[in-house]
Structure formats: C-alpha cells, structure tokens
Design a protein around this nucleic acid. Sequence first.
DNA 1: CCCCAGGGTAGGG
DNA 2: CCCTACCATGGG
Length: 287
Amino acid sequence: MKIRQDGSDLVVTTHNFSLVDTLDCGQCFRWWRVPSPVLNENIMTGVVANKLQTISQTGDQLVFFNTTSDEFYSVWQNYFDFSTNYDAIKLVLCKDETINKACEYAGGIRLLRQDPWETLASFIISQNNNIPRIKSSIKKLCATFGEQISDDVFTFPTAQKIAHADKSMLSSLSLGYRDDYLLDCSTKIASGQIELEKIFDMDLALARETLRKIKGVGPKVAECALLFGFYKMSAFPVDTWMKKALSYFYSDGFPEFASQYAGIAQQYIFHYIRTCKDAIPTYLLKK
DNA sequence: CCCCAGGGTAGGG
DNA sequence: CCCTACCATGGG
C-alpha cells in the first residue's frame, strides 16, 4: 500500500477496496455520503475515535483529508483492516458459486475494526428497525448524551453516561421498547459486570453466551456485535434478508468450508441481495 | 388501513 | 424443543 502526503491531506493507493460499499453496507451507522461535483469521485464523512473524518475515493485512490501518516497508521490502517489479505480469504470463499457472484458485486467491502461498545449498543438499537432510522436514532443518542466535537457532530456516549441518564431523556430518543435494552446493556458494562475487552480473547461460544446475558441481545444482535465489534470473522448474523438468501440459495445449508470466514461471506451476500435488484427474483422475495 | 424494518422476550404448548 | 403474540416507532 502506497501512501504520500499532499499538503494537509494523505493520499493512499489501494486495490479491490470500495469506500462507499464498506461504509454503507450496514456494518456501521456513523458515516454519510457527501455529494461530489466530480465524476467518479465518492466522498464519505463520519465519526471514528471521537473525530470527524472525511475521505474520498476515485478509482484506487483514497484521500484522507487533514490527516497525517501517523494518524493513518495508528487509526485508519487498523479501522479499514488494510493489513489483512482479502485475496486469500476470497480464494477460500469464492469456491461457492453464490458467494462468488456476491463477491464480484460487493468484493470491495472490508470488515471494519470498530469500537466494541459503540457497535454493541448500535446493534441493540438496530433490532426490528431499518437502517436509515437506526442511523438517525444513533445520531440523536450522540447529540443527547455525547460530547460536542463541532457544530453538528458529537462523540458516541459512554456506557456510564447512559447508565446514569435521566429516564425521560432516554425515552426522548424514540427508541421505543429498545430503551430498556440499551439501559440494561449500559448498566452491565458501567458496573463491570460484563467486561467487553475480555470478549476478544473468548471463543465464539463463550462470547455469545456472555453477550446474551444482556437484555435485548438475542442470537442476531450477538452475531452482529461479534462480527462488527470484535472482529470475529466466523460470526454469522442472520436477519430477515439473510433468511431470504439462505432459503433461496442454500436449501442444503451454508457450505462448511466457508465457515472460517462466514461473516465476510455474509456481508458480501447481504449487500448483494439488498442493493442488486435482480440478485433474487422479486416474486421470491416475499417470505 | 396495511406491511416492513440487520429481532427479542415471555408464555404456552 | 417449537410456535406465537406482543413489543414502539417511522416510512412506504
């Protein structure tokens, strides 16, 4: 990977990476597209590590605005998982015909290494909810309990802050029945009853069992937290979309040889069937 | 009015 | 073990 400083910006050359697909495929909720006047340029802006960041992509070239190489190596290389060789992962996964097709469509996606607390809390809010509304709920959560970074930008609040929050302020977020879940999660973490850092070293079964002690964390939310917040590549979230994919493509079951990277495959397939209109025939999408 | 959204819980068979 | 009603909220 080549990087060079251009004034205050950092220019990075990649391959097989899609900025938009990676940040807009439902694994994170704090990035937004910014319209660009330039043809073939995609711009995203979002909050990571309590900082607002803007990144553009044109072809294989990324521009990290107002970024030093020190910041790139300490934050962004890790966040975008640039050190992992995805070609090797795809070599395994693409032996499956469906994953291969999904990968041709969405193979620029990378598994982000996100903050575990923010990811867990976000996917508690995500349940039985749609992505645009999840994003606006989280934005409101940050504006209410986070710390202000700039005009319209706030940090993600700590578990302590939410655990000790006013009930009425929590319900003002319009999370519905999810406020109780978020509160229980925050309380268990603020009190030390659940230590998120320890989950990184747990095997998948124990990690699941630990997270499921939180009210409102069932099978699907636990898998999402483990995949997107703890970098467990074999975690395999099954939501309403993946149920459709499994019944349409995998009536004989999901291939065993893919299980090591099942979460990556799931992400390719999820984005493929959601955004590519003819991935699954429309008349089969019901149920 | 209906249905759906990156579901989970509680309760009954 | 399975199945189902119900759970808030907003968008289409």
